[in-house]
Design a protein around this nucleic acid. Structure first.
Length: 643
DNA sequence: GTAGGGTTAG
């Protein structure tokens, strides 16, 4: 570095925001320093790499430089490639071709190809490939490696392989890229074969196998590689934690996290997001609080993904106030994921209006909504009974925001109508959908039919479902519940018999509760362990008291068999959420809120019992079921009996 | 003076 460069670098180091950068720029203009290509280049580099949200300024900087060189174009292309407007990289590349006398180099191609990969644009990738070919740069290692990624991202494994085969002297990075390409295109066996034939493996090669296997749900294979690999670093550990958590194996994720600490490694921001996601699934609020404390002490509060994971975890553990606190105080820039996490958090508690308010706030902050945030807002409307607002969002999605509704959005709409009891509207909506409805859509309507006891429609829906997914026991159970609800015991028996003939078993309901940092699981009708026996003893007394003091009459419609009244009562009493509450009431200290997680939707009888317990015992109960939170206090539920 | 492969949230 010459003296001038050193001077610039030292000055730029202090430019932490756009204003101070502009001051430097003004100074450089006044002293004609900016005419020096090195100075202009450094300025642009700082703008795109060190600062965020200054890409527009960077673009103008380039346009106002009289003779920008290849370096400056490359820097701008690189800046756009990882932004939310990667297509600007492509236009900058074209601008360079038209305006610059010297040709694009390997950097230009590598950066522009990165943008094409992020856009998953095969056409652009192929065009750049041709361009690189004519300039003799296609076999340049950096270019060919990025080409492999582009084609893999676009799902064109054949093209990726061809590039690899034509690379004269592939190094370990090129090999890694082609293994990743196989995984990206869902070819696990192919990935294994290439991995085995690699002439040289470094740590990253093993780590990408862990990532590839866990992403494909091949957890046993991942475990085997993890155990066999010669050296493990924090990426290896993080990959296992994130991978297992993503597959719903939160116990294993907790295990790897404990093990990571046991071998003396420090949790980093990635392993922490993984273990937080495990907490979110398990509803482990106390553990999440400990992790939060650790994150603050370790100075990781600046990292947006960590804050997003915290927001999501607190929401899913029922602590929407903590979620809000994290969300509002997060020091880093809020991304669309941050906003969506908070919107979902509010929605799960039934705060529909607040969720809508947040959506508008997000827009005002300059973030453009995407398809996923629309799922969140439709979910919010559906769980708060805001049918009109939901319809409004749905119609605006395509018309105003230019986002084509996907099958998930249609599913939200069916849920919106279904929950509100507008079953016929839901049905008509389904049959007029421009894309063929899938099982999820029909199942949503079947659930609504069950809730509102509409036998005729349920039978029609079940017919569709048995064509699409004949072996789903949940659908048969729902139908059987609907018959039981209206006393059609003969039909209940028919459904049960056909289930038995097809050797279907009902997937059991379970509930979890955390007491003294231990998670207890209760399963309806399972073999009784000590905790379950304790729960039954408590429950007997509780049920007696709410009968006498709360006027409880059992609601027996969701019992499967045509059995004696007394037996029916026993069957609803054993629902797992009642056991979990009874256990918690015996173990938790006075005044603490009982928090329960359940894998299925809560039934009407359990819902009534929770309300009565909250009144008779003056106890707060928070129940997370499959679709939302119920907060019981003084005999009422936050869902306003709408779920 | 700039790069490519491995882990981060809805």
């Amino acid at each position: 570095m010459n003296k001038l460069e050193q001077f610039c670098v030292s000055l730029l180091k202090n430019c932490k925001n756009l204003t101070s950068l502009q001051q430097f720029h003004a100074h450089a203009l006044k002293t004609s320093l900016s005419a020096d290509p090195i100075v202009a280049g450094k300025l642009l580099l700082h703008c795109t790499v060190q600062l965020s949200g200054t890409l527009d300024y960077a673009r103008r900087l380039l346009l106002h430089t009289s003779n920008p060189d290849v370096f400056m174009y490359n820097t701008l292309i690189r800046g756009f490639s990882d932004s939310d407007t990667p297509h600007d990289s492509i236009s900058t590349f074209t601008l360079m071709l038209n305006n610059l006398d010297s040709p694009p180099d390997s950097f230009s191609f590598a950066f522009t190809l990165k943008a094409a990969a992020n856009m998953r644009c095969f056409r652009t990738g192929a065009q750049l490939h041709c361009q690189a070919l004519t300039r003799g740069l296609d076999t340049h290692l950096f270019v060919s490696t990025t080409l492999i990624s582009v084609f893999a991202e676009c799902g064109c494994l054949l093209f990726a392989r061809k590039v690899f085969d034509e690379t004269p002297d592939p190094n370990v990075v090129t090999w890694n890229a082609i293994v990743t390409a196989f995984f990206r295109c869902d070819d696990v066996k192919g990935a294994e074969k290439v991995f085995d034939s690699m002439p040289l493996k470094n740590l990253a090669s093993y780590n990408l196998m862990l990532a590839g296997y866990t992403k494909m749900g091949e957890l046993e294979f991942a475990r085997r590689v993890f155990e066999e690999m010669p050296v493990k670093d924090e990426v290896s550990w993080s990959t296992m934690i994130v991978g297992f958590a993503r597959c719903g194996c939160f116990d294993e994720a907790f295990g790897y996290f404990r093990e990571l600490q046991r071998v003396g490694m420090r949790p980093n921001e990635v392993s922490l997001t993984g273990v937080l996601s495990a907490c979110a699934q398990a509803g482990a609020l106390e553990f999440a609080k400990i992790l939060h404390g650790f994150i603050e002490k370790a100075g990781l509060v600046w990292i947006t993904p960590v804050n997003n994971a915290l927001t999501d975890t607190y929401s899913k553990c029922g602590s929407v106030d903590m979620a809000r606190l994290v969300f509002e105080r997060m020091p880093g820039k809020k991304s669309i994921v941050s906003w969506t996490s908070m919107i979902v958090g509010l929605a799960m508690q039934g705060y529909g209006e607040e969720a809508i308010g947040l959506f508008h706030e997000m827009e005002e902050s300059g973030i453009k909504p995407d398809g996923i945030v629309f799922i969140a807002i439709l979910y919010a409307c559906s769980h708060a009974g805001l049918v009109e607002q939901g319809c409004d969002f749905f119609s605006k999605m395509a018309k105003v925001y230019g986002i084509k509704p996907a099958i998930e959005h249609y599913g939200c709409m069916v849920d919106l109508y279904g929950r509100a009891g507008q079953l016929l509207k839901a049905y008509n909506f389904i049959i007029s959908m421009p894309i063929p409805p899938n099982v999820v859509i029909w199942r949503t309507l079947l659930g609504a039919c069950s809730f509102y006891g509409n036998v005729e429609l349920a039978e029609q829906v079940q017919k569709r479902l048995s064509e699409l997914d004949p072996n789903n026991s949940g659908d048969h159970v729902l139908l059987s519940n609907i018959y039981a609800g209206v006393g059609k015991w003969k039909d209940v028996a028919i459904v049960r018999r056909s289930m038995a003939e097809m050797k279907m078993t009902k997937s059991p309901g379970w509930s979890m509760i955390e007491v003294d940092k231990v998670m207890y699981t209760f399963i309806a009708g399972a073999k009784q362990d000590d905790a379950t026996k304790e729960a039954y003893r408590n429950l007997k007394e509780i049920m007696m008291r709410i009968r006498v003091e709360g006027g409880y009459v059992p609601e027996v419609m969701n019992v499967l068999h045509d059995i004696e009244e007394e037996e029916k009562e026993d069957a609803v009493i054993t629902h797992s959420e009642k056991l979990a509450v009874a256990f918690g009431m015996g173990r938790l200290s006075e005044g603490s809120v009982v928090r329960i997680m359940k894998n299925l939707r809560v039934c009407k009888d359990c819902h009534t019992v929770m309300k009565l317990i909250s009144r008779v015992y003056r106890l707060g109960i928070v129940l997370r079921d499959r679709s939302r939170f119920h907060s019981f206090n003084g005999g009422v539920c936050s869902c306003k009996d709408y779920w």
